[in-house]
Design a protein around this nucleic acid. Structure first.
Lengths: 204, 204
DNA sequence: ATCATTATTTGCGATGTGGTATCTAAAGGG
DNA sequence: CCCTTTAGATACCACATCGCAAATAATGAT
C-alpha cells in the first residue's frame, strides 16, 4: 500500500496552492525559493525533490490555476440554462477570482506569465496554449448557442469567440491594475450584449 | 551656456532606449543593473546619478514607451480621413510595434508592468493610468466619429471605447505569447467591424 | 532487529544582487 | 594656473540568490 521509505509530511496539492499564492502576487522572477519554501512550510531540498527547480514549480502552479479555470468554465456553462447566462456566469466567476483578496491579482497565468514569456520558453508555450484554449472554449460554446437558436445562423462564432477571449484578457489586466469588481462587471456585461445582442426582456 | 562641471558622455534619451530594450524583454524583476548598465554602456554609479535607482529607471522607460504610443495614436487618428481608418491604423501600428524584432514582446507597459504591479505601487498606478487613458482616447475618438455621422446617434461610445481598449490589451498579450502579426491583424479587423459596423463597400 | 528506501534537516558554497564610497577625469570660473 | 563642479571608473559592501552535499530521521521489507 504505502510506498517504500519515509512518508512525506505535506500534501503536494496543499503546498502547491501556497506556492501558487506567492507566485500570484510577486510573479515568477521576484519570487525567491526562500519565500516559497517559507510559505509552503518546506525546506528547499524537499522542495527540489518534490517539484524540481523553480521553473518546474512555477509551471506546476500555472497548470493548476489553468485547470481550476477550465473546471469553473465547465461548471458555469453546464449549469446555466442558456449559453448567454453560462458565459456571463463564467466571466463573473473569473472577475471574482481576479479581484479576491486584499490586493487584486488578476489571472496567475495571463498576468504573471507574460513578463517572463520571452525568456522562459515553456512559460510562453503554456501561455499560448491557455489563450488558444480560451478562444476555443468560447467559440465552441457560441457554436452550440447558434445551433440551439440562441444566435443568428450568420454569426461568426470564431470571431466572437476571440472577442470573448480578448475580453477576458482585459479583465485580468484591469483587475491587476486595480479596477473594481463593479467596473469589470460592466465590461463583462457590455461584451455579452455585443456578442449575444441586447438583453431580451425576460418574463413579463 | 554649458553647465558647470564635466559634461556627460551619453545622451539620456539614447541610453534610456537601451534600458527600455532590456526591460522590454526581461521584465522589471529579472533585469539586473549589470545587464542594464552593459546595454546602456554606463557604469552603475553614473546610472544612479542620472536616473536614480532601478525602480525610477524602470518607470522612466515605462513613461517613455507610453508617450511614444500616445504620439502614434495622435498621428494615426489625425492623418486618417475617417475615424474608422484612424483607429484601425493605430491598432495596426501597435501590432507592428508589438511584434517587431526577432522575439515578439508586446507592450512594455501592459506586459511587463503587470507582474510587479501588486508589489510596486508606482508601477500599478502608471499601469492603471495608461489603461484609463487608452479607454478615454478611444471613447473620445468614437464620440467625434458619432458627431461626424460615422456612427449611429445611439452608439454607446464609452462602452465601445472600452471594447477597443480591451482589444488592445489582448493584442499586446497575444503578441507576447507568440501570435503572428497576421493573427493579430484579424482580431483588430474584427473589432473594428464590431465597433463601426460591416465595411461599407467603398468605391465601386 | 537490521537493512534498504525515501524524506527532512543542516549547513555550505559559488555566484549575483542592488547600492555606495572613493578616487580620478574633464570641463568652466576666477 | 588653481579651484570648484560635475561625471566617470574602480573597488567594495552586505546581503540574497539558487542549488546541492552530507548527515539524520522515519518508514517498509526481510
Amino acid at each position: 500500500m504505502s510506498p517504500r521509505g519515509r512518508p512525506r509530511e505535506f500534501e503536494p496539492d496543499r503546498v502547491l496552492d501556497q506556492a501558487l499564492d506567492v507566485f500570484w502576487t510577486r510573479g515568477y522572477a521576484a519570487s525567491s525559493l526562500d519565500e516559497l519554501g517559507a510559505a509552503m512550510g518546506i525546506a528547499r531540498p524537499s522542495l527540489y525533490k518534490a517539484f524540481g527547480d523553480k521553473e518546474a514549480l512555477y509551471l506546476a502552479t500555472l497548470e493548476r490555476f489553468r485547470d481550476g479555470m477550465a473546471e469553473t468554465f465547465r461548471a458555469c456553462v453546464v449549469e446555466a440554462t442558456t449559453r448567454r447566462a453560462g458565459v456571463l456566469g463564467f466571466l463573473r466567476a473569473s472577475i471574482e477570482r481576479y479581484t479576491a483578496g486584499d490586493t487584486a491579482r488578476g489571472c496567475l497565468v495571463l498576468c504573471t506569465g507574460l513578463a517572463d514569456a520571452p525568456t522562459v520558453p515553456r512559460v510562453k508555450q503554456l501561455l499560448a496554449n491557455m489563450i488558444a484554449e480560451l478562444d476555443a472554449a468560447y467559440t465552441t460554446t457560441l457554436r452550440a448557442a447558434r445551433n440551439a437558436g440562441e444566435l443568428s445562423r450568420r454569426t461568426d462564432v470564431a470571431a466572437l469567440g476571440r472577442l470573448l477571449g480578448s475580453t477576458q484578457h482585459s479583465l485580468a489586466m484591469r483587475a491587476r491594475a486595480g479596477a473594481t469588481a463593479a467596473e469589470l462587471d460592466r465590461i463583462a456585461v457590455e461584451a455579452i450584449a455585443i456578442v449575444f445582442g441586447p438583453e431580451r426582456a425576460s418574463r413579463r
